[in-house]
Design a protein around this nucleic acid. Structure first.
Length: 459
RNA sequence: GGCGCGAUAGCAAAGCGGUUAUGCACCGGAUUGCAAAUCCGUAGAGCCCAGUUCGACUCUGGGUCGCGCCUCCA
């Protein structure tokens, strides 16, 4: 029985899908004006894990992760680069897919782009206007009248009074209430034609919050099961989505809200604005993508996760132990035997709000079992179980010999040295054998002797 | 200022009202020509102060500290 921590209830709740055996979930994706950083990697990997676990549990899952391809920052960046927003966003969408693929993130069932759902967005604004929740301001923007929506703040736990009390310095605004947010931004002079769409309120473009409500509704319906995103989206983004969708449709929007914790650097949130971010591709130059995925999954998705080379090194060492246990595992291991004791512990952990640290601990216990018993069944079970998390699916030797920086000596050179060392050992010339081993070690190659012969891996 | 989250061994990170989390590092042993890998074993924890309880790292209250949101942010 799966339990999910629902931000709306601030508690773990038993998961009950709207439609038996079907799950419809939506995750806020990227605004594509730059390369993805590690924080984006965490969202992608975490919800990929959720997606995989739901499917593994037998659900028919429809997973939507949107792409914001129209937004102030995109317009600004495109102007700076003197290129069209389409060229800009397409480039970063491609880059995002490369990063996601590297991290073993499965493609969502739908990746809607905001610019392809403008009619649905306008329709929603119209509905909100009819329901008395939207108004056109003097500056031409169409805003959402927050105070007219009962229940505003139910997700973030903020009341309108609290929000007003905590208000920051507000720029001069045409809003009826400073907390109102924009549904439709009027077009400004000098803006490219490609960022303007016609509407009954005049030319303009959609507000960010509106995009997700409209795309979610279009692809998943007025009410769906799970909505995810980073913890920073809880307010105002998700709060506003609720106001829009429930205000327009009059029914509950989402049943379970999930929010992942941040990646931190030196104990501070990694973000564009703080400038302390590392892009995924930057990190992948130094660390194997599976190490990064493992690093993310060995922490609970709601906990903060500090990024540093030391922690990545630690994750690499741990993953190496798991792969070492799989050295003689067959390539094709088949499915998981869910009746086996480790699998049951694994399932219990995953069903408890996706407790991947606990699930990973089970993997280590199973690795110990594999090493002790040399059982092929145990090895197959380990690989199959890890596969549920999108881990350990490569050939163990490939992983172990790949190393973080696949450069230096090539395989042939290493094997030649190993042969030379075997000859030296046969001749009882241990000084020569040790010298070869030491030289290889200096090249980052670690030798391991066993009854079956000598194998090597990269440090 | 308002709202929320967290504090676990050297580092990272979970569960649990009483019985080994787990990984890395450390110590002892097995194995090895010596290593590495592996196995066996030891050691090491729960921010502070109260309370509840036969018993609290785990529950309650109060502190302290850290982080996040209240503006675009995954």
């Amino acid at each position: 029985m799966l339990k999910i921590y629902n931000t709306l209830a601030r508690d773990k709740q038993v998961f009950k899908p709207i439609e038996a055996n079907k799950v419809r979930m939506y995750v806020c994706g990227m605004t594509v004006y730059d390369y993805c950083h590690l924080g984006h990697a965490r969202v992608m990997v975490v919800f990929d894990m959720v997606y995989r676990w739901l499917k593994s549990a037998g659900y028919d899952v429809t997973y939507v992760r949107n792409i914001t391809d129209i937004d102030d920052k995109i317009i600004k960046r495109a102007a700076e680069n003197n290129e069209s927003i389409h060229t800009l966003t397409q480039r970063f969408i491609d880059a995002m897919h490369e990063d996601a693929d590297a991290l073993g993130v499965q493609r969502p069932d739908h990746e809607p782009r905001a610019t392809q759902f403008i009619p649905q967005m306008l329709q929603m604004v119209e509905q909100l206007e009819q329901n008395g929740l939207a108004y056109k301001a003097a500056d031409g923007d169409v805003n959402y009248a927050v105070r007219k929506f009962e229940g505003y703040g139910k997700l973030s736990g903020k009341s309108l009074e609290d929000l007003r009390a905590g208000e920051r310095v507000e720029v001069a605004s045409e809003k009826n209430d400073p907390l109102d947010f924009v549904l439709w931004k009027h077009a400004k002079e000098g803006e490219a034609e490609e960022v303007k769409w016609d509407s009954k309120w005049g030319k303009g473009r959609p507000g960010w919050h509106l995009e997700c409500s409209a795309m979610g509704t279009e692809l998943l319906g007025k009410q769906f099961d799970i909505h995810g995103g980073g913890a920073d989206l809880q307010f105002p983004h998700h709060e506003n989505e609720i106001a829009q969708s429930e205000g327009a449709h009059g029914c509950q929007y989402v049943n379970y809200w999930m929010h992942n914790g941040f990646i931190r650097v030196d104990n501070e949130k990694m973000s564009k604005s703080l400038g302390n971010f590392f892009t995924i591709r930057e990190v992948l130059k130094k660390y194997d993508a599976e190490v990064v995925r493992f690093f993310i999954l060995r922490a609970h998705y709601r906990s903060p996760l500090n990024y540093s080379d030391a922690h990545l090194d630690d994750a690499k060492g741990a993953l190496t132990r798991l792969y070492t246990a799989l050295k003689s595992a067959p390539a094709d291991v088949g499915g998981v035997d869910w009746n086996e004791v480790h699998a049951q512990r694994f399932k219990a952990a995953m069903d408890d709000d996706f407790n991947t640290p606990e699930a990973v601990a089970v993997l280590f216990d199973l690795a110990n079992e594999v090493n002790r018993s040399q059982s092929t069944e145990a090895a197959m079970q380990l690989k199959a179980l890890a596969g549920v998390l999108g881990l350990l699916q490569r050939d163990a030797q490939t992983f172990l010999q790949g190393g973080s920086v696949p450069e230096g000596l090539d395989d042939a050179a290493i094997n030649a040295q190993i042969e030379a060392r075997i000859a030296a050992k046969k001749a009882k010339d241990y000084a020569a054998a040790d010298r070869i081993r030491k030289e290889l070690l200096e090249e980052g190659v670690i030798l391991e002797d066993s009854a079956q012969g000598t194998t090597w891996r990269r440090a």
